[in-house]
């Protein structure tokens, strides 16, 4: 076993282990941290595949931004764990059976006989001057320009949908009306009230 294989197995082990731990974690915050570990391992596997840019993006975007946001959300929400556990236990037998059947079927189909090195040789390695980002950029803006634009539309929908679902009119926000503030006159703000002074008490 060469060093690359050893690294691959270590990363894969942590990937699978952290994914399982994430699913079975009782604490939502811990689950997020296990997911972070899973992303790190996946990024490592991508580096082995010479997809450096994707690996770095995964860490920067998912670990750095998305997961941190998740942690904040989980800390802010008060999730009642006991009800979640009760539901989980109820579905466990059926879920376990389905999962076991799927795992059995997948191991039958996706074994070494189908995707092993004998039938699918590993791709040739690129030299040191090979730049993953250059190739990606070239492909993204020529061959894949149409899917690229569509992905942008997906983001646009996400923005519109998020704002539509969260934004409440008038109820939640207060805004300044600057022209009103500038044009304000003293009599709008100050009201002079003449109050009859009480008669002085005689000493």
């Amino acid at each position: 076993m060469n060093s690359e294989q050893t690294i691959f197995y270590i990363l894969s082990f942590w990937f699978i282990a952290s994914s399982l731990a994430m699913i079975f974690a009782r604490n939502a915050a811990k689950a997020v941290l296990f997911l972070v570990l899973g992303f790190f391992s996946a990024a490592g596997i991508w580096i082995l595949l010479e997809a450096e840019f994707l690996a770095i993006t995964l860490i920067l975007v998912y670990v750095g931004a998305v997961m941190v946001l998740f942690l904040f959300v989980i800390k802010m929400l008060n999730i009642d764990k006991s009800t979640l556990r009760a539901k989980f236990a109820g579905y466990l037998p059926l879920g376990l059976i389905v999962a076991l059947i799927i795992i059995a079927e997948m191991t039958l189909v996706l074994g070494g006989a189908q995707f092993g090195l004998e039938v699918m040789p590993s791709p040739a390695k690129h030299g040191a001057d090979y730049s993953n980002i250059t190739v990606l950029a070239m492909q993204l803006y020529t061959t894949y320009v149409y899917p690229f634009e569509l992905a942008a539309v997906v983001l646009l929908i996400a923005i519109i949908a998020a704002i539509t679902l969260v934004h409440k009119k008038e109820a939640t926000y207060k805004k300044q009306n600057i022209s009103e503030q500038v044009n304000v006159r003293a009599k709008d703000r100050v009201r002079l009230v003449s109050i009859a002074s009480p008669p002085k008490e005689k000493k």
Binding site: Y144, P147, I157
Partner: peptide, 25 residues
């Protein structure tokens, strides 16, 4: 005409539909 565009089209459709249903929040 490629699996990628079919999938992206499906996602554009589905995401808009999720939001449309929830618009009566």
């Amino acid at each position: 005409y490629s699996l990628l565009t079919l999938y992206l089209g499906l996602e554009i459709l589905s995401l808009s539909l999720y939001a449309l249903i929830a618009i009566a929040r």
